[in-house]
Amino acid sequence: MTIATLSEVLQPALKQGYAVAGLVTLGWEDMRAYVAAAEAENVPVILQAGPSCREHTPLPVLGAMFRHLAENACVPVVAHLDHGYTTEECRTAIDSGFTSVMFDGSRTPLQQNIDDTAAIAEMAHAAGVSCEGEIGFVG
Rank of each mutant, 00 (worst) to 15 (best):
Y18C: 10
L110N: 07
L81C: 11
M65G: 04
H83G: 05
D82Y: 10
V24G: 08
V43P: 00
N113F: 13
F137C: 05
G50K: 01
A19E: 05
I114C: 02
I114T: 02
D115L: 12
G27R: 06
G136H: 12
H125T: 06
T108Y: 10
V35H: 06
Q16V: 07
D116K: 08
F66D: 02
R32N: 02
Y34D: 01
A4Y: 02
Y18K: 09
Q112Y: 06
D30V: 14
V101S: 03
W28F: 14
A121N: 13
M123P: 00
D95R: 07
N42A: 15
G50Q: 02
E41K: 14
A64V: 13
A119D: 06
E41Y: 15
S7K: 14
D30M: 10
H68M: 14
E39P: 02
T99R: 03
G17K: 03
T99G: 04
E29H: 05
V24H: 04
M31Q: 00
D82H: 11
D82Q: 12
M1E: 04
E55G: 01
A124Q: 06
Y85G: 04
L69A: 15
L47E: 01
E39C: 11
E89N: 13
D30I: 15
N72T: 14
L110A: 12
E89W: 13
P44G: 14
C53S: 05
E88V: 12
P51Q: 13
D104N: 12
A119Q: 08
E71L: 09
E71K: 04
G105C: 11
T2A: 13
Q112M: 06
V43W: 04
R54C: 15
Y18N: 08
A79C: 02
P51V: 12
E71W: 08
I3K: 11
V24N: 03
F137G: 04
A49C: 05
P44T: 13
I114S: 01
G97F: 11
A70C: 03
G22L: 06
M102D: 08
I94T: 01
L14R: 04
M1T: 09
V43N: 03
Q48R: 03
G63M: 07
I114M: 02
A33E: 01
Y34R: 05
R54Q: 14
H125R: 09
F103W: 12
D30W: 09
T25D: 06
P12C: 15
Q112L: 07
L14T: 09
F103D: 07
I114Y: 03
G50Y: 08
S100Q: 07
C90L: 12
N42L: 09
T117P: 02
P58E: 08
A13V: 10
